[in-house]
């Protein structure tokens, strides 16, 4: 297997290397006037090291990371839990679906003004935004996942003596996992995009806030460092859930 994947990975790296080389050359040749606006890749990396060394990047990154983790974890947990209940119990679904279908289309950042008034500028605000951002997609993917389980499997489990709770634990949840993971994977990246936007607008700490400060100081190199961190985090979160999904469902799918 490794023999097949290794050459493929090498080929994936090549375009990135070419892109970075071109970036460096174009910036060094001063095609774009003023190196402040388009610093070479090496300068960005130098600043990257500097920001890590003085702790600015680490502090802001940790602020964002903790908000994303708490908001995403609680939002997903609530989404999965309520999604299971709504997917499994028709009465609950009928009662809650009209409310959620009204709230779901509101973009997560649309909640920002009202949440600022409710919670003020503090740690709770970005966490609440991430919670909302994660909750709805995970909720609907979980409902879809639970409902997509063929009735034949539920009947088979019932006939084999399983109680409703056992059917939920041993049949519905495992079979709904692919759908649940689709929601988690998509929202893991989205949580980072939303937290940056929220920090840029309303919160004085975090990668988003660092971006805004760098913009006001015309520090394009710091802006690019922040964008690289953001890109890596979005990708890492998505890859983590792809990995987990494969670990949990890869054997039987």
């Amino acid at each position: 297997m490794n023999q097949v994947t290794k050459p493929t990975r090498r080929w994936e790296i090549l375009p990135v290397a070419i892109f970075l080389a071109l970036w460096e050359i174009i910036a060094r040749l001063n095609f774009v006037p003023g190196q402040f606006f388009f610093p070479p890749f090496s300068v960005v990396m130098e600043e990257f090291g500097h920001l890590i060394a003085n702790g600015v990047l680490v502090d802001n990154f940790l602020s964002s990371l903790i908000r994303v983790l708490i908001g995403f974890f609680t939002g997903s947990l609530a989404g999965v839990t309520l999604g299971i209940v709504m997917g499994w119990n028709e009465t609950t679904n009928k009662a809650l679906h009209p409310i959620f279908s009204l709230l779901y289309p509101i973009p997560a950042l649309g909640w920002l003004p009202i949440l600022m008034l409710w919670f003020g500028i503090g740690e709770l605000l970005p966490i609440a935004i991430i919670f909302i951002c994660s909750f709805f997609p995970v909720l609907y993917n979980t409902i879809t996942g639970i409902r997509a389980v063929p009735k034949g499997f539920i009947r088979a489990a019932e006939i084999l003596g399983a109680s409703r709770m056992e059917i939920l634990k041993t049949v519905l949840l495992p079979l709904a996992l692919p759908n649940i993971f689709t929601g988690l994977r998509l929202e893991a990246g989205m949580a980072w995009r939303v937290i940056i936007a929220a920090e840029m607008v309303a919160i004085p700490t975090g990668i988003g806030a660092l971006l805004m400060r760098a913009e006001s100081l015309i520090r394009v190199d710091i802006i690019i460092v922040c964008l690289i961190v953001l890109s890596v985090m979005c990708l890492s979160f998505e890859k983590f859930f792809i990995f987990m999904e494969h670990r949990l469902t890869g054997k039987w799918r």
Partner: peptide, 21 residues
């Protein structure tokens, strides 16, 4: 209840649980 009738049922599509070995 169905779960306590102690009946074995082999469905037309077998309904083997795909996630269990």
């Amino acid at each position: 209840p169905i779960s306590r009738r102690r009946i074995g049922y082999l469905f037309q599509d077998l309904a083997l649980f795909p996630h269990l070995d």
